[in-house]
Amino acid sequence: MSDGDALLRAEGLCKRFGGVVAAQSIDFALRRGELRCVIGPNGAGKSTFFSLLCGIQRPDAGRIVFDGRDITRLKPFQRVRLGIGLTFQTNRAFHAMTVAENLETARRGGAAGDDVHFQTALASFGLAAQLERPASALPHHELQWLEICMALRRGPLLLLLDEPTAGMSPAETARTAEVLTALAADGLAIAVVEHDIAFVRQVAQTVTVLHQGAVFAEGSFAEVTARDDVRRIYLGHVHEAAA
């Protein structure tokens, strides 16, 4: 990985909460058009890493460079305006508004970029026909899709997704994976924090494994999942949980 041309680069990110070290020196780089999955056992620091990237938390040390600019000290809304779109683990579309109003609120959050990815996602997820429905009337998976469309509305360079397929059926998960793969092929950089191994296998070009607040392994899905130490810390947990 290397990376003069990285779109997003995190260097030595550290974050402590009291005595708990949630991130210790995370190094991470993402190219334009790359689709990356970030996995790791519970407590590995995935959520902390995600909130450091989007600015909900400030790192104690380290820096984050996005599109050639140091964004370490920027507030979340300023990062979004520079071209980062994101969704949360839980459904957080505005339920009191219609689908169209949700998208309009997303569109006017700042200066708009190229919306070609948004158009692709809106059409692929089948939401274009449901603009007048209240968001509260959408089923769970369509709300997740609506949020991805909202994150894409203003044409971000980077899409950060926190467990986008949580609670989806296998078919819905597969469709999400398909659409995200197509968006990445079109040049969008996407980083996904995810638990669902089937999803990760389907989408990932490169997988980053976090463990105890640091990058533990990085490589292709096959490489990473073949490593014994990765299986021990992470995949072992998955099998136990599934059993």
Partner: peptide
Amino acid sequence: QVLMAIREDTLRTELLGYDV
């Protein structure tokens, strides 16, 4: 609408690019 969005979910609104 932005005001109502903030009422419903302040962080979500900020992360759509609004200075809440």
